[in-house]
Write a protein that binds this DNA or RNA. Structure first.
Lengths: 347, 347
DNA sequence: GCCGCTCCTGGGAGCGCTCTCAGCGATGTC
DNA sequence: GACATCGCTGAGAGCGCTCCCAGGAGCGGC
């Protein structure tokens, strides 16, 4: 590849001239070469090679109206984005899938509630062809923004605003939270535990509510004193555990809505000299790397294919974009990904 | 904001027509309004408002040759990107700074060694104005790529290829790794420890080498049996700890090159019934969120301002871009950010 | 009252590309 | 052999914007 000469880069015009063809033909070759005879194709490719030609993206976008990029919107308060490898892994999955389809990833981190205007302007500004959004809270403005911007979107996690009438059922990808919770609680029950508590996640996140529902599915008529609220953070897990122990010193198992809270809970149990799993069995959720296997004792937890979820999200969006472009193809549908129980030492 | 009518969005032409001015004047107003009389400015702004006009980014880029976006290149094998909140935090810092300057963040995750071609093509393709790159190993091709693409770059972490003659001293931002290591080891020595071991990071990363150097700065003539190699992962830390214990059962302190490895080391010490900090004092590095404070006992470690580093990187790059545009301003220089010892229970 | 100056404004070119459409040669058909 | 057909190529328009440059309005000075 020739060094980038300072100043101007070769244009299609230059390639065409060098190859002795018209700009139109050069363009055809650069875009796949359909309907151009072999010898000409070769000549153009040779010219491209020799000149180190790289298409000007802006010019192309200007006429095709497609940017070849999608936005990933993360509207999560800082704390969680930091401490949660969840996002990193999803993004990795998304990146892999997008890369495989020559699509770029523009990361939009929402910096506080006042920042949505910027996001809206960006998404509506034709910078990207579509959007992937995460972690929608009940009052999340992102759905409205993408709809108004007129670009396809796919959500990570089941949105709570499902019943919006104007909505064309925006597809989402989510783990089987409810099923996973059932799996965990059922497992604890099979272990012979009788007073199974729950540390729940924040009420404005569907994943937390779904896990709570799963817990209730198994333990019909559960005593409300067995449920404590957390915020998906280590600290909140510790606090909830302390609260539970105070209210119900007789509990013999806890299903915690995520691993981060479980690690906090574990710390409290350890501090009080309560043995895990002997006295209290503990099951987490997420099978989070570098958390679940590193606690003492290592966490039994519900595992999900996080990277796979990211890939899936990207795939759904790409399909929607394709549909938009070609005007045909199937409408992408939401996907619920399976979960499994990962047995370690805490239960 | 008007709903996006399907099909066409208003153009500058439409705004100009509605405001009763020329396209040129409308453009001036949209770009700040310098040199346009107040009444016209108002008329144009009103038209913009009413039509819901949003500038077409591609058209603008086509003529200005500036994209308003920078790439963040992460060339790190999956494992570390996953388990290391480090990146998340740096990115958050970068995002904040870029956002404040109306610049977008395009995330490029390198998917294996064969993927650099794609990165090179992308960076040279005029998609972005500059690049931020992370975690350069000795043979990292990223520096060559950005140089060839002719775009400014700033690196996170001191690159090892410093002495490249063709290089205009690419600026970088790095923590004071060596000083931090000195701080940690000195602290252990002040505690009265006499056989201070070290678990080092991978030799192809300058941060690991700098920390090793700092360790050696304090412990001149250190016995090589006191140093074990790790790979910045939990598992490698555990392995190195076991190795050290075998070689030097008499050691009374360990300075570990990062918190992840320290948590692995801690696990091994616990398994063997060695009390921390009584028998062996342990100091980590990074003060990594949700690791350092969650181990048992919590880690004494060297803390750095990770988000601040990200901001700084972005700021340096923005300055370089500005310089490029205006042809003046100071050349950005590398920055070493300070570190502090965070005392917890492990030493 | 005229000239020269400054300050704004509009006309128009052109950024690099895609895509439609017309044209042209080669081929097939009767 | 004349004509329709097909496949390929090139000319040219135009995507939406910025920016150069010319020209007009307004004003002060003599």
């Amino acid at each position: 590849m020739p060094e980038q000469s300072p100043g101007s880069r070769p244009t299609l015009e230059a390639v065409a001239a060098r190859a002795g063809v018209s700009r139109a033909t050069a363009s055809r070759v650069v875009n796949g070469g359909d309907g151009v005879r072999k010898p000409l194709v070769d000549k153009v490719l040779k010219a491209v090679e020799e000149l180190g030609y790289i298409p000007n993206h802006a010019a192309r976008t200007l006429v095709t109206r497609r940017t070849g990029a999608v936005a990933v919107v993360i509207a999560e308060p800082e704390t969680r984005f930091f401490s949660d490898p969840f996002f990193s892994q999803q993004i990795r999955g998304i990146s892999k899938e997008l890369t495989a389809h020559d699509t770029q990833l523009v990361l939009l981190l929402v910096e506080g509630p006042g920042d949505f205007d910027r996001i809206a302007r960006y998404l509506a500004g034709g910078h990207v062809d579509g959007a992937l959004a995460f972690s929608l809270h009940t009052d999340d403005p992102v759905p409205a923004i993408t709809r108004r911007a007129g670009i396809p979107a796919v959500y990570g996690g089941r949105p709570s605003w499902t019943a919006d009438p104007g909505d064309q059922a925006v597809p989402y990808v989510d783990a089987d939270n409810r099923g996973g919770a059932r799996l965990a609680v059922q497992y604890l029950r099979d272990l012979g535990r009788e007073r199974i508590a729950h540390i729940a996640g924040p009420a404005d996140q569907t994943s937390a509510m779904d896990r709570l529902d799963g817990y209730r599915d198994v333990l019909l008529d559960v005593d409300p004193t067995l449920v404590a609220d957390g915020a998906f953070t280590v600290e909140s897990g510790a606090r909830a555990m302390a609260e539970l122990l105070e209210r119900r010193p007789d509990l013999d198992a806890v299903f915690v809505a995520n691993d981060l809270m479980a690690s906090g809970a574990l710390r409290v149990l350890r501090e009080r000299g309560i043995s895990v799993p002997e006295q209290v069995a503990l099951v987490g959720f997420d099978d989070m790397d570098s958390v679940a296997s590193e606690t003492d004792p290592p966490l039994t937890t519900v595992g999900q294919e996080i990277e796979g979820q990211g890939r899936l999200m990207a795939r759904l969006l790409l399909r929607a974009l394709d549909r938009e472009r070609t005007g045909s193809g199937d409408v992408p549908e939401s996907v619920i990904t399976p979960v499994t129980l990962v047995r370690r030492a805490s239960a």
